[in-house]
Nucleic acid binder design. Structure first.
Length: 190
DNA sequence: TTCCTGGTCG
DNA sequence: CGACCCGGAA
């Protein structure tokens, strides 16, 4: 649900959805139309279809790749193979659900790393994404447990402080490490 | 690269 | 009003 959709709009729908479909098995068992119903108002309805396909794949005996039936795999590579799971979601599930030592780059992290280390990189391009992911990977802490906190902190920094329109360098905890924040004239967001 | 949904914010 | 939102598929 959080793919390209704001948290504030997701939170309500998410709890409603979980109430209706407590597990992936419930989603897999349901008709596609019922899943679409529960998705109403969120937009990007291909995600609902992908979720249903994912649920059926994961709950089928020969589809659960390396994980037990009905459970999502913990390896980013295995997660990536599932419908609707891209690089970010794979990293997020691996890191946040399984505490794996996995990198994760969403729109917030990409913006933070760009401003901090490579201000002139174009985030939208494939090459820019490769650069950002390389930095994110190089920054990973030693253990999965610390990686959970690390990734969470990166995302929150982008969501609350280093926001899209205003960087808020005056209240940034890592300003001294940041190329943009440490520059006298670079307090505003490029 | 482009498309997909629509509320919100600067 | 345009850009943005815890992206991913075609």
């Amino acid at each position: 649900m959080l793919q390209q959709t704001q948290v504030s709009r997701v939170v309500v729908k998410y709890s409603e959805f979980l109430e209706r479909f407590p597990t992936l098995a419930h989603v897999a068992r349901a008709k596609p139309a019922r899943v679409m119903e529960a998705w109403e108002g969120l937009g990007y309805y291909a995600r609902a279809r992908n979720l249903h396909r994912l649920a059926r794949e994961v709950t089928s005996a020969n589809g659960a790749d390396g994980a037990s039936v009905g459970q999502l795999p913990s390896e980013p590579e295995a997660l990536r193979a599932l419908p609707g799971i891209g690089a970010y979601t794979a990293g997020a599930v691996a890191s946040f659900a399984y505490e794996r030592r996995a990198a994760l780059v969403d729109t917030n992290v990409a913006r933070v790393l760009k401003r901090a280390f490579v201000p002139n990189v174009q985030i939208k391009t494939t090459r820019g994404q490769r650069t950002i992911w390389g930095i994110a990977d190089a920054m990973l802490p030693r253990t999965g447990r610390v990686t959970w906190t690390h990734n969470q902190a990166l995302m929150e920094l982008g969501a609350l402080v280093c926001t899209a329109r205003i960087a808020h360098c005056d209240r940034c905890p890592v300003r001294s490490y940041c190329v943009t924040g440490s520059k006298p004239s670079g307090r505003r967001a490029p």
